[in-house]
Write a protein that binds this DNA or RNA. Structure first.
Length: 476
DNA sequence: TGGGGTTAT
DNA sequence: ATAACCC
């Protein structure tokens, strides 16, 4: 919330207009009587304490679980989910036999000849189940942030406060934790922070119960005072267990990390740069001179990750709402002709059109992404994007109009803008992305909303355009 | 490494 | 448009 502190409102600017979807409950809210903490410069709810109660919910081997629900005969057998030549995830039977995530299919079969493999390149069922989980959690409390398909953060601060207000003081001595306590730390029922975290652990248990009863899914949960700590503590007891972190054990938790690369928020690149500075442990990062770190990484990254090293994370749980983009991609050994590329692009686009149709909102931008073959060189993608012409946007929801042909034409223009088709080329990935999604305008003519609503179909009479001007220009 | 996602610059 | 991060 740091960037919206001056406005003093929830949610931060830019997120508040997101559509109420998949159901009509508000996805955003204003924290009642919010105030700005002089310490953290953050909007927080008023109440007995400034500290938040956050739960991180992490499904066990999610794709494998979905496959076992789809085909119950797979239950009890070692199961791997395959994408191309990789086992991207596997169930616990397979893990016991030595199969690891992202293991080569050949290595996995060698380790575990009985391994059953199912193809998981089509994410449709995983995506659908993923949103069912998020929706279920939103029923507990509307502020839910997705991280990938199988993890969610929920801000339980208000829910815990409400439960405590209903509480009889006579019940206090009977308060118990649900699940594990990190480090087996004793609970102090006189400590309000402990009490609030215990209530959080009870809500987390109810969430996991609901996931199991209503969706048949198991998972872990971690309860703590911020997202970083909740995420770290959720993984302590696996699978299908939960853990709460009491404040006195925060230091132990972050120092249980063996290397800074295990810190969520410190990725591949930052790890390399830190290592070049001689920083490899959490301790190293804590003790490194702040000014020097800022010079090396920039003030933003430096301050953020050094706070992380102390277990501090003031980032709010942002309600994810409906997706910001839809994409479909396919990787392959080789694509070296325009016809080949066109066929692949048509496949990707067909799937995307189905998805975008079901969503109801309309994308206003389309993007084509490629990966070129390069021996030994690391991972780089290139993309071109352009606005979707308004006459095509209009046709998007409507069934029998052919929207494929003009869209493929646009995509092939983007393609030729990136790839010189008169020269030999070698691609290993194609991806099509719809983004800049806008809700259909339901504002009534003559109302304020009608005139304030961004135009979806009429020509723009003002000089201002809502899209960015660096979009590639596609001539008809 | 796959097939997705997000935000910041 | 790219680069970083997440799963």
């Amino acid at each position: 919330v740091a960037h919206s502190a001056e406005a003093g409102v929830w949610p931060p600017p830019g997120r508040e207009k997101r559509a109420p979807w998949p159901h009509s409950e508000p996805r955003t809210r204003r924290i009642c009587c919010g105030l700005v903490s002089p310490v953290q410069d953050q909007v927080v709810p008023t109440g007995s304490s400034f500290s938040r109660i956050i739960v991180h919910v992490d499904l066990d081997c999610f794709y494998a679980q979905v496959e076992m629900i789809t085909n119950p005969e797979l239950q009890g057998k070692p199961l791997g989910v395959q994408q191309k030549y990789l086992v991207v995830t596997c169930n616990y039977e397979a893990r016991k036999l030595g199969v690891k995530k992202l293991m080569n299919v050949r290595d996995a079969k060698e380790k575990c000849p009985q391994l059953v493999l199912v193809n998981g390149e089509d994410l449709t069922r995983y995506r659908e189940m993923s949103y069912k989980v998020t929706e279920l959690l939103e029923e507990f409390s509307p502020v839910v942030e997705r991280l990938g398909f199988d993890e969610n953060f929920v801000d339980l601060t208000e829910m815990v406060e409400k439960r405590l207000q209903q509480f009889q003081s006579s019940e206090l001595s009977a308060m118990t934790v649900s699940g594990h306590v990190y480090n087996n730390q004793p609970v102090d029922l006189h400590d309000i922070l402990h009490i609030r975290l215990l209530v959080g652990s009870q809500i987390a248990a109810e969430m996991r119960e609901a996931m199991h009863n209503q969706l048949g899914l198991t998972g872990c949960a971690g309860v703590a005072s911020n997202k970083l700590l909740a995420k770290l503590v959720s993984g302590i007891f696996k699978p299908n267990q939960q853990t709460v972190l009491l404040p006195e054990s925060s230091r132990d938790l972050i120092h249980s990390l063996n290397h800074i690369k295990e810190m969520p928020g410190i990725g591949y690149k930052t790890t390399k740069r830190l290592e070049a500075l001689g920083i490899s442990s959490v301790h190293d990062l804590q003790n490194f001179p702040s000014k020097m770190l800022e010079k090396e990484l920039g003030i933003s990254v430096a301050q953020r990750i050094q706070k992380l090293s102390f277990g501090e994370d003031n980032s709010p749980v942002m309600p994810s709402g409906p997706p910001q983009s839809f994409s479909e991609e396919d990787s392959f050994k080789k694509c070296s002709s325009e016809v080949e590329a066109k066929n692949k692009i048509e496949e990707l686009l067909a799937s995307l059109l189905n998805r975008v149709c079901q969503d109801g909102r309309k994308p206003h931008t389309i993007r084509l992404i490629i990966r070129r073959y390069s021996s030994e060189k690391h991972y780089s993608r290139e993309s071109r994007q352009c606005p979707i012409p308004s006459h095509i946007i209009q046709k998007l929801g409507t069934g029998n109009c052919d929207v494929m042909t003009p869209m493929v034409d646009i995509l092939m223009k983007l393609f030729r803008n990136m790839v010189n088709v008169k020269m030999p080329f070698h691609l290993t990935l194609l991806s099509v992305c719809f983004c800049n999604l806008k809700t259909i305008n339901t504002a009534k003519k003559g109302t304020i909303d009608y005139y304030l609503a961004p135009s979806l179909s009429t020509t723009s009479h003002s000089g201002k355009r809502s899209f960015k001007m660096k979009d590639t220009h596609i001539e008809d």
